[in-house]
Simulated scan of single mutants.
Amino acid sequence: MIERADQLVLNYVSKAADAAHGVLRADQRLDFTRRLRARIEEEVGDGRDARHVAKVLARYGDPVALVEREVRRLAAGGSAGPLAAPVAEPVAAPVAAPVAGPAVADGDTAVIPAAANGTRRLPPLVDDRAAPPGVRVHRRLTEEERGYGLPFAGLRRVAMSRANPLATGGRDARTIVKEHPRDAAALVILVLAALLVPFHLAPLAIFQVPVVVWALGAALVLFSENWNVRDRLLGIGAPMLGYSVGGVVIGGLRVGLEAGWQPFVTQFFDVSGTMFMIGTGLGVVWLGYRLLALEDR
């Protein structure tokens, strides 16, 4: 986790350095990135958890906004003090022309004019919350087209244990298991119950082994505080619903209405185990997704 936290800081400072490239002089850019990293390290302190670091960086907002503040400080002749995080997290986007006069076309590239001290100015930034309603709607529709706004878009984070933690807010499969070990154990036990069905193990007293294992996983789910009542009932009820209702429906369809009771019972027990496994898989997927989306509720 320490390596992932350090990578978060390095990625953020690198983005700030890239934003300052061509805008600040080399010595200014070096001094800016040095002070930025020192300030971040000071705020992070001993908490080297990736999620904590991601929250600290979120308070700094867009690195381009920090570069713009540095440009304004240099233009005003300010002293090089330690950098501080913005009071409110900005969601910034360049929308206006450069401050210092019109841009000069250089081929297909617009060159931002330099200030009096030789430092180029960035375009002014605005907060998205102050954008016109039409602009906000367009951005929301664009995010939905890319998959960011879809209900199950966050499910892909489960497999992103090697991804950039800044893109996932420090949440992936490993962090979820570490933060919710009992809930993760409950999901594993439910999966184990489904995997034991094809082995036809000897029953314990009058109970089949998969049912006993399922009951243990269901108990852990019921006593969890991270799922609401609906999620718990759906997660642990799906296997039993598949076993009973699925077995009746599929078994009835396979034998027909005139085959008699005994053929129906035979078909029911033939298909009910498979339906139990399918129901368990659906329940575990739902519980896993809801656990992943815990912070979005």
Rank of each mutant, 00 (worst) to 15 (best):
V285Q: 09
N226E: 11
V44C: 13
G154W: 08
P94R: 04
D127Y: 02
A205C: 01
V197R: 15
L125A: 06
L292P: 03
R156F: 08
W286K: 02
A19V: 00
A38H: 12
A238V: 03
D127L: 10
G47M: 07
A202R: 06
A84S: 14
T274V: 15
V249N: 03
A50I: 07
R254V: 15
E68A: 14
G217W: 05
A167M: 06
D270S: 14
I40H: 08
D108K: 12
L287K: 03
G246P: 06
S79H: 09
P263Y: 00
T33E: 06
R72W: 09
L8Y: 02
W286L: 12
A194H: 07
A194Q: 07
A17L: 00
V271L: 03
R290K: 10
L241C: 11
L204Q: 04
L204C: 00
P63W: 08
F152C: 06
E70C: 10
A54F: 11
G256T: 03
L233A: 15
Q267D: 15
V158H: 10
A85E: 03
V23T: 12
R171H: 09
A58W: 05
R232T: 10
D6P: 01
E258Y: 11
V188L: 15
A80I: 01
F199R: 13
G118T: 01
R121N: 13
H138Y: 10
D106N: 08
G251M: 14
L125E: 00
V284E: 07
E3M: 11
A97W: 01
V56T: 14
E258T: 11
L241S: 13
R37T: 13
G251P: 04
L24N: 00
T280I: 01
D27C: 09
V265L: 14
T119I: 12
P124M: 01
A159H: 08
G107H: 08
V177C: 05
P102T: 10
I236L: 08
E258L: 13
A218Q: 02
A185T: 03
L222H: 04
A65G: 11
